[in-house]
Amino acid sequence: MSIEALLVGCCFAISAAVLSWIVSVMFSRAAVLYRSKFTEDAKIKLSDLFLFVEPEKLFIINMAILFAAFFLVFLIVGSWIVALVVSVALAVSPPFIFRVMKRKRQKQFLIDLPDMLQATSTAMKSGSSLNQSMESVVYEMSGPVRQEFDLFMREVRVGVDFDVALDNLYERIPLIDLNLVISGIKISREIGGNLADTIERMADTLRKKLEMEGKIDALTSQGRAQGYVMTGLPILLGIVLYQMEPEQMSLLWEVWYGWVVIAIVVVLETLGYVFIQKIVDIDV
């Protein structure tokens, strides 16, 4: 072996070692940053959802799911690029999952709110004060309504002003319907009047609004189902074609223009789904 070939080999080995070290350092820093951001966001969002789970344990479960998904997709598809894309998509999905959970919790809160207000109005008509009525009613409720109003009553008991506690409640549940209830209670407490009748009217208004929204959801359910079918049909068709012609379909992730086609399909699929949801999303 000549000296020139030996020098070239040494240069390649040193370059490969330096590149590996740089990649390992960048990967370790990215992992530390991801772990820090994940645990910090999970701690805040889980507390907002009244879910008392340790963020570190949740992070370990998340990493186990990512590695399991990578190996499972790699075994099924046989492409590490597709497996990596799926793992990255799962890695960035927790904020969207927390958002969906928060939206479902707020929806359940709105469903239970009219019953809570009606029961509070009935208790006030029997001679109890607003605080006493809320405490007795909240004790009998369950779900997000009990959690939020129980925290509200705790703030009032430790000396927080009633209006400030209501504002804190609205900060935790920023919904227009709840803002209507809070504004009505504040105005009625300030100018006087029959607060029990005011709360009862608000409960009846919210109940009618929820009934109307339920009818609209039932009428637009077919449009939403069409959106799901139109979005999932190309994916299902691609899987079927891959089973029938694996060599031809594998070109989608083996050549650069195949990735361009996938990117165009993803963009068009996303736009179509968003447009359909905008059409069927009717605000009351």
Results as ranks from 00 to 15, higher is better:
184 G>N: 08
184 G>M: 10
184 G>E: 12
186 K>G: 08
186 K>I: 13
188 S>T: 08
189 R>C: 12
189 R>F: 12
190 E>S: 15
190 E>V: 06
190 E>R: 05
192 G>W: 00
192 G>Y: 00
193 G>S: 14
194 N>T: 12
195 L>M: 12
196 A>N: 06
196 A>P: 05
197 D>K: 10
198 T>C: 08
200 E>T: 09
200 E>I: 13
203 A>R: 03
203 A>H: 06
205 T>P: 11
205 T>Y: 15
206 L>P: 00
206 L>N: 00
206 L>D: 01
207 R>L: 12
207 R>Y: 12
208 K>L: 14
208 K>V: 07
208 K>R: 07
209 K>Y: 06
209 K>R: 11
209 K>L: 14
210 L>Y: 01
211 E>G: 08
211 E>Q: 13
211 E>H: 05
212 M>E: 05
212 M>H: 10
212 M>Q: 12
213 E>K: 11
215 K>F: 15
215 K>I: 12
215 K>T: 15
215 K>C: 10
216 I>W: 11
216 I>D: 02
217 D>G: 07
217 D>P: 05
218 A>K: 02
218 A>C: 11
218 A>P: 11
218 A>T: 13
219 L>W: 10
220 T>M: 13
220 T>P: 01
220 T>K: 10
220 T>L: 11
221 S>W: 05
221 S>H: 01
222 Q>V: 13
223 G>M: 06
223 G>R: 10
224 R>Y: 03
225 A>D: 05
225 A>H: 04
226 Q>F: 03
226 Q>S: 04
226 Q>Y: 03
227 G>Q: 02
228 Y>V: 10
228 Y>R: 06
229 V>P: 02
230 M>W: 02
230 M>S: 04
230 M>E: 06
231 T>A: 10
232 G>Q: 01
232 G>R: 01
233 L>G: 05
233 L>P: 09
235 I>F: 04
236 L>F: 02
236 L>C: 03
236 L>H: 08
238 G>Q: 12
238 G>L: 07
238 G>H: 15
238 G>T: 12
238 G>C: 10
239 I>Q: 05
239 I>M: 15
240 V>T: 01
240 V>I: 13
241 L>N: 06
242 Y>L: 07
242 Y>P: 03
243 Q>L: 11
243 Q>A: 07
244 M>N: 11
244 M>I: 13
245 E>G: 11
245 E>I: 07
